[in-house]
Amino acid sequence: MKYTLGLLLFSILLAASIVYSEGAFLEALRLLEELSSEGVDVSFQVRELNRALELYRGNLTAEAGAIVTRVLQQLTELKRELPTFKFWKWLDVGSRVAILLAIPPAFYYFFPRLYALAWAYSRRNWLIKEVKKNDNRR
């Protein structure tokens, strides 16, 4: 009777732990999908969850559950930082586009002036000589 109750309690605990792990795993996966679709680097978390899957396959549920819990914490932290990440990402893209679109007017304005400067610089040793009207020598 004592052993039966012990076995029953163990089974309930084991079932509860697996259910918890599955819930945590699904939550981790949901965050993983959301973060990766936004461009957040989740390579490490993907590797870790694949390692947890290997452990689940080998019936090492406790080790796998520990990895899933750790990854879930990391992903929750990344999710908290997502608005900042998105802000900097779009600022980066916006800056690049603005710089690229500013190049044509800048080119139109500065290129003739820079070319004129270069033209004058390359002829800085030239002498201005007065040529008589009837003199054919250069």
């Binding site: 893209v93 586009v97 044509p104 080119f107």
Partner: peptide, 28 residues
């Protein structure tokens, strides 16, 4: 002006096309 206006217009057009293309590729 040392550079002819037409030459500058053509050069600016080439630069504009290249920059717009690069900007389009930059946007995810």
């Amino acid at each position: 002006m040392i550079i002819d206006d037409e030459v500058l217009a053509v050069l600016t057009a080439i630069v504009t096309v290249a920059c717009v293309l690069a900007a389009a590729l930059t946007v995810p």
